[in-house]
């Protein structure tokens, strides 16, 4: 009996230690973001006078005003939203039908084509950047949003792989029953396959959105003029041009702006993400 009590005590101590370690790790991880938010709403001279704070002092929106005076940050926000939404839609539109055909279709080249598509998961973006840029130049599309969006869509390897798994996991009887009711191959895609994987679509859409929102190198290349940039690309310009990096408040305002939409997307998709990765 005493041994059991001792073991119980040991486990409680261990849990306490785990709590301590996780609390420290969480605080350290969150600190830069807390500082960013505090600085975004604190007058710039106060930040320069004493940088350390966890809460806005003399809360103000002046940093957002100063940032939008220096650069078209609202236009950047709009460009980012447009590009991320378009890339996300494009990835889903390409990968869902393909995944269905790979899961349920019949074709002698089906599995070879599946391999061809999913191997691209292992292609780093740098390997295509130079020729694609030259093609964009030749087509006269430099400095347009489509030049950013279109070449960013075909990275669909993981999406096709994931949706195919999800569709393969559906009971075949569902499709057979629909087939007996006279639903053809395409009808079954719309009526059976799509509704039954719909719960994991927001999860992958959220990751596609995040990926597109993050695009940096390709955006640096294709979006030349200031008003055409996205937030992720524009931020670099912002922190560069200030040289001495003395306008931290406006920079942190832009950073906060750049994080907000992604945060909203992930909060909305939270349940879906939990379900999507629960059984892998």
């Amino acid at each position: 009996m005493r041994e059991v009590a001792a073991a119980e005590r040991r486990r409680r101590t261990a849990r306490l230690l785990v709590h301590g370690a996780l609390a420290i790790a969480s605080a350290a991880t969150l600190f830069p973001l807390v500082w960013m938010l505090a600085a975004a709403f604190t007058p710039n001279d106060l930040i320069l006078a004493r940088p350390f704070r966890l809460w806005p002092e003399q809360a103000t929106l002046a940093n957002f005003a100063a940032a939008s005076e220096a650069y078209p940050i609202w236009r950047w926000l709009w460009n980012s939203l447009l590009a991320a939404a378009a890339v996300t839609a494009g990835k889903l539109a390409l990968s869902l039908p393909a995944a269905y055909a790979f899961a349920r279709g019949r074709h002698r080249w089906r599995d070879a084509a599946f391999g061809f598509v999913i191997v691209t998961m292992a292609f780093p973006t740098v390997m295509v950047i130079v020729p694609t840029y030259l093609a964009v130049v030749r087509l006269g599309l430099v400095d347009t949003l489509p030049a950013l969006i279109v070449p960013s869509i075909p990275y669909i390897g993981f999406y096709v792989f994931f949706f195919r798994q999800a569709m393969k996991a559906l009971p075949p009887e569902m499709f057979e029953a629909a087939s007996l009711d006279g639903a053809g191959f395409l009808r079954q895609f719309v009526d059976i396959a799509l509704p039954n994987v719909a719960h994991v679509v927001p999860a992958l859409a959220a990751f596609a959105f995040l990926g597109a929102w993050n695009i940096f190198l390709w955006g640096q290349l294709t979006l030349a003029s200031v008003e055409n940039k996205t937030l992720a690309v524009g931020v670099a310009l912002f922190s560069d041009i200030e040289g001495a990096q003395s306008s931290w408040g406006p920079l942190m305002a832009v950073n906060s702006l750049a994080i907000l939409p992604v945060l909203v997307v992930f909060l909305v998709a939270r349940r879906s993400i939990e379900r999507a990765f629960a059984n892998r």
Binding site: A98, A101, G105, R106, F116, V117, V128, G157, L186
Partner: peptide, 22 residues
């Protein structure tokens, strides 16, 4: 219950060509 080869190819084609070209 399964798709014919033309329909399968049709659904895969956009993804296939996007990956091939880009």
């Amino acid at each position: 219950a399964h798709g014919g080869s033309l329909q399968t190819a049709g659904l895969v084609a956009p993804a296939f060509f996007a990956v091939a070209v880009f």
